[in-house]
Design a protein around this nucleic acid. Structure first.
Lengths: 230, 230
DNA sequence: ACCTGAACACCGTTCAAGT
DNA sequence: ACCTGAACACCGTTCAAGT
């Protein structure tokens, strides 16, 4: 057997010394990026590794476990920030924008985030970093914890939203705009009147505004507390 | 054939005059509530209606269309508010709490919301109402539009989060608390130190805080605009 | 004209039987 | 001891053939 040769049959190949969780997750991520979440089936991942679906169960606990491991690997690639009280707001925006960009690059992967509590290594590191920046910003621990939760929810939700709209986003925005302006002014006067505002901004900008709004809201809470409970 | 009789075979029964989109959606919602989203298969819905999966395609365009119709019916049941500028903040909380409660009562249904632009009748009515309350509150149209988007994202995301945690939520919170306090203080000092804050509050309370934070953040934007661009 | 059984092309997971 | 082909119990969707 030529060790560099590619083999098309599942029989007749060298020992699987090179296989392992990393290889399985890697193959699955490649399929995810090129074909989307629905294409990530045990059978297809196995085929990409020149083996059968049953062999995958040695390295992952099943499809659910595989998705979990994929998310962890994706999140692990997000560069963190060293919390700096003098620029915590900017750090928050950078970190969350990177997180969102990474998620968007992996269509569908975030469905897993919401489904499971943040328990894997990489997700914990990200949350720890978020918490650090928020506390450096002077937030009360409870507010900081809640803000973490909200930010993760927003990042995940905008990501799911983004990748459901696979087609040209601008074209789709235009389509929705047309539909909104065409709505009966008797029944939907506000949506019709403000259609332009309803479809304004791309995913990045909408996410940025959402993060900004949450930061402002948290600062308002902090200010209120300092007035009433000094 | 006795018209009140139940038939177990797909052959040998009266004409399907009673069937229609409503019946299909109703049967699907019953399965959703009792067995969850994964159990809502074309075959099972058909079986509940004493017919075969193929017959469903007369009334719905496929599984995706069925889910869409189910969501519309669920959202249609959310009672709306007549916008009142003097109590818009309370109205927002009431409306969104009702929306969330309705979603939580239908495990898994919200996965559909995010996946599709808000284009169905009932969703449009809800968004129109949200927009009305926000504008009554004095928000700039663009801010109001963005707030709508954020609120819908939050409601959907917390709902997905809620129903992934099927088991006893309190027990699960305790489990996560144990895991957080047990984390290495070298690597995750903040999560470990603030574990209590991280798991504080049930779904309702966390959602309420999130809505409050977004409202405060939007008011801060409004105030800022009025100072700089009077 | 309407309805649907049966077929098609898939799934995730298990396990007996091989090497 | 390790690996996996084949089987099991499902999917959504289509369509030819029946009534």
């Amino acid at each position: 057997m030529n060790p560099t040769g590619r083999h098309r049959s599942t029989r007749d190949r060298q020992a699987k010394a090179s296989l392992g969780e990393d290889a399985v997750v890697g193959a699955a991520l490649e399929i995810l990026k090129s074909k989307g979440l629905a294409a990530v089936t045990m059978r297809r991942v196995a085929a990409a590794l020149d083996t059968g679906a049953a062999s995958l169960y040695v390295y992952v606990s099943g499809r659910e476990g595989l998705l979990q491991a994929m998310l962890d690997r994706v999140i692990a690639a997000v560069e963190l920030e060293r919390p700096d009280p003098s620029r915590w707001r900017g750090q928050l925006h950078s970190l969350l924008a990177r997180m969102r960009r990474t998620l968007v690059a992996h269509p569908g992967i975030a469905a897993v985030t919401l489904a499971e509590p943040p328990t894997t290594e990489a997700v914990l590191r990200l949350v720890e970093n978020l918490l650090g920046i928020l506390l450096a910003g002077g937030l009360d621990p409870q507010d900081a914890a809640w803000a973490c939760d909200i930010f993760v929810l927003l990042a995940t939700a905008t990501h799911i939203e983004a990748d459901a709209r696979r087609a040209d986003p601008e074209e789709q925005a235009d389509e929705i705009y047309q539909r909104f302006t065409g709505l009966s002014p008797d029944r939907f006067p506000l949506i019709a009147a403000h259609a332009a505002q309803m479809v304004a901004g791309d995913g990045d900008e909408r996410f940025r505004v959402a993060v900004d709004v949450v930061i402002d809201g948290m600062l308002a809470r902090t200010a209120r507390r300092q007035v009433y409970e000094p």
